[in-house]
Simulated scan of single mutants.
Amino acid sequence: MAAGDLKGMSLDELDDQLAKLKKEQFNLRFQKASGQLENTSRVRQVRRDIARVMTYATQKRGGASSAVKSAAKSKPGA
Rank of each mutant, 00 (worst) to 15 (best):
R42D: 00
K69I: 14
R44H: 11
S70Q: 14
A71F: 01
K73Y: 04
G63S: 09
I50T: 02
R44S: 04
K69G: 10
A72D: 15
K60C: 00
A51C: 02
K73R: 11
R47M: 13
K60N: 06
A64I: 12
G77P: 13
Y56N: 10
D49Y: 11
K60Y: 00
V53C: 06
G63T: 02
A64R: 10
R48G: 05
T55M: 00
S65H: 03
R47F: 14
M54A: 11
P76Y: 11
R52K: 15
P76A: 07
M54S: 13
M54F: 00
S65N: 04
S65R: 04
A51M: 10
M54P: 00
Q45F: 05
S41G: 02
Q45Y: 12
A71C: 07
S66L: 09
R47Q: 14
N39C: 03
D49K: 13
A67H: 01
S66M: 07
Q59R: 00
S65K: 03
K60W: 01
Y56R: 05
A57F: 01
A57M: 05
T40K: 14
A51W: 01
R52F: 01
S41H: 12
A67Y: 03
A64K: 00
R48N: 10
R52L: 13
G62K: 04
V43W: 00
R48W: 11
T55K: 08
T55Y: 02
S70M: 12
S66E: 09
R48D: 10
T55V: 01
N39Q: 07
I50Q: 09
G77Q: 13
S70V: 13
S66G: 01
T55P: 09
